[in-house]
Design a protein around this nucleic acid. Sequence first.
DNA 1: CCCGGGATGATCT
DNA 2: GATCATCCCGGGG
Length: 200
Amino acid sequence: MVNHPTVAAAALVTLLSDKPQLAAPRLLGAVIRHQEVALRIVEVEAYDGEDDPASHCFGGRTARNASMYAEPGVLYVYRSYGVHLCLNLVCHEPGSAGGILLRAGEVIAGMDTVRRRRGPGHREVLLASGPGRLGQALGLTPETDGVNFLQDPHWDVSMPGEEVIGSSGPRIGISRAREEPWRFWVTGDPSVSGTRRHNS
DNA sequence: CCCGGGATGATCT
DNA sequence: GATCATCCCGGGG
């Protein structure tokens, strides 16, 4: 009875039923798969609920952020600057809201599909480096918002296989709550985004 | 290599 | 009308 699928699923639900800022670093090294494409997650950001001024939940529930109030296992997809689709794993304590933004990954399966989606001329380590690029690599659509990866055969998330050495710092691209070090990344990993400015 | 800035459109005030 | 949880290109050093 070791490795029964429901055991792994239960462990993920437990992980994602905590405050996002506590769960996020434990997600480094996890693998997310959509159909034939799989990414090893190397950079994430935690967005808490209505009390986090940088969260889409700040100010309460709206049509856009409704998925962040759903149960852990659900995917929250939002459109950034009109053009990019970005992916969060819903993560919060019971009765709350929140999510973990997947900011960068390493392509470990489906390379041909990713290259076709991203277009020519990209170095391999940059194919899913940055939340918009990661979304494009995974083939997100607006309909991905609200999908439960525990119940949809096209989607899967696996717990990290090995411990990784992580770093943390302020979240990128926000104007409020800059003091919270809620961005987490695999130390030294070449696919982490924002290497020019934000990494220490 | 580094930095600055423009594109682009949904969302909310 | 302002604000973005962004990306990428072009110019200068």
